[in-house]
């Protein structure tokens, strides 16, 4: 129970970094969840994050699983609320005044400027995740196969990830 305020702080803070998507927050999540609070080991965080890619809906709902590991059901609820409500309120507010900003010339500048930065942060997050997850030739093969499968076919991505689990069970023990 005593961890709940820390869970709220960490995930509330991380949510503010998710410009353009959740991946941008991954490097900072690693440092807070693993190095600062010792809630999970790094391999555990990678596992939970990856399982989160199979979950339906928003692909960062894995924060609920981290909260659950730290503090049970209340931890899961607090993590999800802290992660989704503050940015939600911001979006709600900006959405309401968006039209009034139409003639503010910096609105266009902000949109154009942040677009590549968001991609860069997502790539940086993916590199951080990849350094932890790609450890040998089998994992290189799985990642490449899923990369190509996603770009070239219309297979449900959750199924591709399940195939990764099967390959792992056979070849990564």
């Amino acid at each position: 129970m005593d961890q709940l305020p820390a869970i709220a702080r960490v995930f509330g803070y991380l949510s503010l970094l998710t410009v353009g998507g959740g991946m941008a927050a991954f490097p900072e999540m690693k440092s807070l969840v693993v190095d600062v609070h010792h809630w999970l080991s790094y391999p555990q965080l990678i596992h939970v994050y990856s399982v989160g890619q199979m979950a339906p809906g928003p692909n960062m709902m894995m924060v609920a699983a981290v909260g659950e590991r730290v503090s049970g059901l209340s931890g899961a609820a607090i993590a999800a609320l802290a992660f989704f409500v503050p940015t939600g309120l911001l979006t709600f507010g900006v959405g309401r005044i968006w039209n009034r900003l139409a003639n503010w010339p910096w609105r266009t500048s902000i949109q154009l400027g942040l677009a590549p930065v968001a991609i860069g942060l997502a790539v940086a997050g993916t590199v951080t995740l990849g350094k932890g997850a790609i450890t040998n030739w089998v994992t290189v093969g799985v990642a490449l196969a899923v990369f190509i499968g996603t770009l070239r076919t219309k297979i449900n991505p959750a199924l591709l990830i399940l195939c990764g689990a099967v390959v792992g069970a056979i070849a990564l023990r």
């Binding site: 994050y49 990856s50 995740l129 997850a133 290189v140 990764g164 689990a165 990564l172």
Partner: peptide, 17 residues
Amino acid sequence: TAMLKGVAAAAVGLISA
């Protein structure tokens, strides 16, 4: 653990794509 290693590698491929 072995399955999750496979899942993590697959997730890297998916996110990169």
